Simulated assay, not measured.
Amino acid sequence: MTDTAPGGAGTGTVFRETTAEPRTQAVPLAHLSLELGHLYMEDFEAGPERLHRHFAQVRPWADAARAAAAAAGRGAPRISTCFLIDDYFTRLSSPAELIPMLLAEAERAGLAIDYLARESACATADGIALADAVLHRLVESPHPGSDGSRPPAKDTGWLTNGERTPGLESLEAMANVASWRPPAETAARRHSVFLDVEMWDEADDGSRTWSCAFLAAVWQLARLGLLRHAGEAVLRPTPWSGDGFPRDWAALPPLLQLDPTAAPFAAYRTRSVLPARFLSVEHAVGVVLAHFEADAAALRQIAERSRAEGLPVPGDIPDRATYSFYEAP
């Protein structure tokens, strides 16, 4: 099948195969992706009882999320559970030692983990630099009245939800202004809650270490079914064979499907049940999501399918991610 366009040599017509046009792959979608935790290696190092206390705190919130999803839908909701393990910043143990302990303590608390992900996969998975791809889809919105002097977030590694306080040099260069001006949130409701998010830092050799907040934003976008590479879905689940877990983290698939009968990994909405210490991190995640320009076709696919099920999703991506925070004992 072909179409025509002006500008061809000699004939004024270019013939192009429409099948060669890039297409956005659709992904299976649950109604809700329920995250049962995101712990650091030191939490695992503290032993099984520390994990059991975590899951015991999570269980009531997980039950409430399931009940709310059932009340909002038509029929039985499709809910998948997931857990994110930090193998990016520290690796104090091996999958063979850690994962069986994790699954056993979740089960002891009456919970089942359908999908298990490595945090390092939010940086790079299956040869695709996911964090870098998300960075290049961030669109900054200049704060009203800004002078454009601030370097782009893609260059500085810092992303804000408003206008920073001007530096001293900028103030001295401006005529008839006060010596200090406060930062301002772009979408403030009377008073600002200003946030400046560090997306990465760099070593002397120029290598980047992505921040926990930025990797968590990639994680949310994956769970919402909004990540694509050349139109193809990324971070796709790998079924677990049940033959035991490897000794090396690099040998573990980026995203593991533990239950073959589980609802899809990605979902219209996400709910994360986390310790309260993650509150500031997830605030930063919302800033990143608010600046992310998702693939238009992926957004359209999700909107059409959710409407067809009578469960339309919010237009703004950050509003699709919800949280329950508990205070650790």
Rank of each mutant, 00 (worst) to 15 (best):
R269H: 11
A263R: 01
G231H: 07
V193K: 10
M199L: 15
R164Y: 10
L111Q: 03
G286D: 13
L274M: 12
D205Q: 09
N176W: 12
F245D: 00
L224H: 08
I85N: 00
D196K: 14
T11K: 03
G315M: 10
E309Y: 04
L311N: 02
D155N: 06
I317P: 01
T4V: 12
A230N: 14
S80G: 15
L171W: 02
A133E: 13
P246R: 07
S93P: 00
E232V: 01
I85G: 00
E97V: 04
S141C: 06
E172A: 08
L36N: 06
A290T: 01
L274C: 04
H229A: 12
A56I: 03
L159S: 02
R247E: 15
D126K: 00
V134R: 05
L235A: 09
H229P: 00
P182H: 09
D243M: 09
L29R: 14
Y323E: 08
A72M: 07
L258P: 06
T160Q: 07
P28K: 08
L116F: 08
T124Q: 12
L258G: 07
S306L: 10
G75K: 06
E107R: 15
R164E: 15
E17Q: 10
H54S: 05
R137D: 12
V197M: 11
S280T: 14
N176C: 05
S306W: 11
W61E: 12
T160E: 11
D3V: 13
L103C: 03
T270I: 10
T209C: 04
D155E: 15
T11H: 10
L252G: 02
L39F: 10
Q25W: 05
S207R: 13
R269P: 02
A178Y: 14
L98Q: 13
H229V: 01
K154N: 03
V281I: 15
E163W: 08
S192W: 10
A133D: 14
I85A: 02
V14F: 11
S170D: 13
Q301D: 13
D3P: 00
V313G: 03
E42Y: 14
V58I: 02
A106H: 07
E35Q: 12
V27H: 01
I128Y: 03
L36A: 07
I99V: 15
D147Y: 09
A133V: 00
F325A: 02
L135N: 01
C82D: 11
P151Y: 09
F89D: 05
A96V: 03
I128F: 03
G225R: 09
A9M: 12
